[in-house]
Amino acid sequence: MRQLIGTLLIGLTLGSIYSLMALALVLVWRSTRVVNFAQAGQAIVTTYIAYEIVTRTGVFWLAVLFAVVAGALLGAGVEYFLMRTLFRHVDEGPVAALAPVIATLGLLGVIKSLVGMIWGNDFRSFYPPVSTDNFVLFGETIPFSRFNILVILSTTVVMIIFSFIFQRTDLGLSLRAAAFQPEIARLAGIRVGPIRTIGWVFAGVAGAIAGVLITPNDVLSPASLDVLLVFGFVAAVIGGLESLPGAVLGGVVLGIGVSFVLNYVGTTLIFPTVFVVLLLALIFKPNGLLGSKKVRSA
């Protein structure tokens, strides 16, 4: 029983971080129909920025603030400079459909090697604002720490803010309209171009927070967020790749699943499990848990 509760709690912590990464991927997918593999790269830059601030000032929240601002700027920059150029140049030919995927992959490589050149490839530890030691309850250790509580709380707050923006504001309405029917949105007077950039900005913010929250329980290196990218993608697919609540749900489901494998089977089977989950999701729930009925074609 104790182990079960611990597993669920860990799953919730992991899941909330996967949800944030999945949200980032879904936001970009909805705004420009691109799976942004560079999201991990953008997040690693913001995490290193946060790392520098934490080691210098010791103020975690200041670091988060900087990471969020940097994430927003990076997201906007990538959309404005890379994606717009790409869509202007590449419109036909056999690679046109694959070009965005490959471009974001290239960007991931560029960012990771640049980060490696600046900070080096060695592992760094990122000091958490509160303890990552496990709680001891009635003489028994529960695999759950103050920091995990912080992770769950802060992701919940972020989700609430996001859903408020998307459901209750004009900006959110424009974002949803532009994602749903760009042409009609344009006719309705929405400036789809800038709205797309804003989608990338929100994605950058979500990715930045995910990076800052997962690193204190892990180590920091130029490649340390690649795994988060894969898990975020799987979570997004489980949720349907189109739906924001789906991404959150997918992340939590995946997090709890991963946590069960971790605690009951062992670390080496995590990736194969995630891969099988991804395949099963694609075979049996190809539109995702909360996705629309539309057929999946890119």
Binding site: V35, I270, P286, S297
Partner: peptide, 26 residues
């Protein structure tokens, strides 16, 4: 993966490349 296209196939094969080598330790 037959019904997959574009980003789905890309992401699935990516997950495969990350996951498969870890089997060697299992």
């Amino acid at each position: 993966a037959g019904r997959m296209s574009g980003p789905y196939l890309a992401g699935t094969t990516l997950a495969l490349a990350v996951g498969l080598p870890t089997l060697a330790n299992q």
